[in-house]
Design a protein around this nucleic acid. Structure first.
Lengths: 196, 196
DNA sequence: TCTGGAAGTTACAGACCGGTAACACCCTAG
DNA sequence: CTAGGGTGTTACCGGTCTGTAACTTCCAGA
């Protein structure tokens, strides 16, 4: 039994948590609602009493992911209050840790790859949440006193995004193994260029 | 009719070409073999006479993609014979063009996101083909006389990979819009650092 | 103790999936 | 002209998918 999520919590929470985990591991189209409810220790009817469709469940899972990511940013601020540069380096370390954590990429990126219908409800929230993440990184770079904060933030974010898909295709020993070195080099380069 | 691929060629070629197009647009699990054969102007039995399973068709599509990508590299060499630096810049321009071409990312990365079974036959060829691509970029950087050619090649490749997933989630106006600037900056930075 | 709502159970509908069998056709090489 | 291989057609198999209906069970709160 690979359970554990089941424990004793409200069925809705168990379904959400189980779905997040299974979508992450097997992809969205690779998991049916029956499998989710069974793994969550409940049944299909209960799922459909709490979520009006699988699509809505997907959207809620993505939002839950974003909430967890947001907590990560808050943790950086708590660990290095006021020291934006230290927080930026903490982000890099955390990102590298996520690369080695498992061979699956970003859930939102994976979802976007799977859900191709241009008007799928998940596409809207993915864009919204990704833009929020980008905003946080830009703010962090700017507050760290780095010139061209937007460009650095966008470069770092593309680098990380690329590293996450690279582990999916080439494993952790591929180009993504150099992620920390690349990111640190970029920051050093941007700090040397202007402002300080 | 969005046909055109149908024309008059052997059924096998039509199936392969149609499948490549549909997998790219709608994802692998988003397309059934019935839909492929119908769009290719043939039928399911003919598909299964040429491919022993959908999985094998997927693998053949990925190989066909890699062949086309290989031709692209050859075109650079033909356009700027011997001038490796010019070829590197040509790659950047081509990459940027691909970003704006359509909102779908790299077929191999998308396939890896969808086909999560660790022993899926496609995962092997994806890794193999991605490593070949990486090898070409490393060679190009090295032959262009750039110090730390591997690191530059890996950085550029992660950046591009990230840009491709970014257009899928945030569109062409997101961070990927700065791809050329980032890539050119990286090359300049690596050329200035050492060797020349 | 009674009651009402949340949750579980079973069965089902309707669609789609990958894959196969059996057979009719057509076109080309000999 | 004929034989045979590639192709098309139809029907089907067993399985899975999302989503629903009808009914029962359980449990907390009044």
């Amino acid at each position: 039994m690979t359970e554990g999520v089941v424990e004793r919590s409200r069925p809705r929470d168990r379904i959400l948590e189980t779905a997040r985990d299974m979508f992450h591991k097997h992809g969205i189209k690779g998991v049916g609602v029956d499998a989710i409810t069974e793994a969550a220790g409940t049944n299909k009817m209960t799922l459909y009493r709490h979520f009006e469709s699988k699509d809505e469940l997907i959207v809620e899972c993505l939002r839950a992911n974003a909430l967890k990511a947001g907590a990560m940013w808050d943790a950086f601020e708590a660990e290095f209050p006021g020291d934006k540069l230290a927080q930026l380096h903490a982000w890099i370390r955390k990102a590298a840790a996520m690369l080695n954590a498992d061979g699956r990429g970003c859930d939102m990126a994976n979802a976007a790859a799977e859900l191709t219908e241009p008007d799928h409800p998940a596409r809207l929230v993915i864009k919204e949440l990704k833009e929020a993440q980008r905003g946080r990184l830009v703010t962090l770079c700017r507050d760290a006193g780095i010139g061209q904060a937007e460009l650095l933030a966008d470069t770092l974010s593309l680098l990380f995004e690329g590293a996450r898909v690279s582990v999916q295709t080439m494993g952790t020993e591929g180009p993504s193994a150099q992620f920390v070195r690349m990111a640190e080099g970029l920051i050093a380069s941007f700090r040397g260029t202007s402002a300080g």
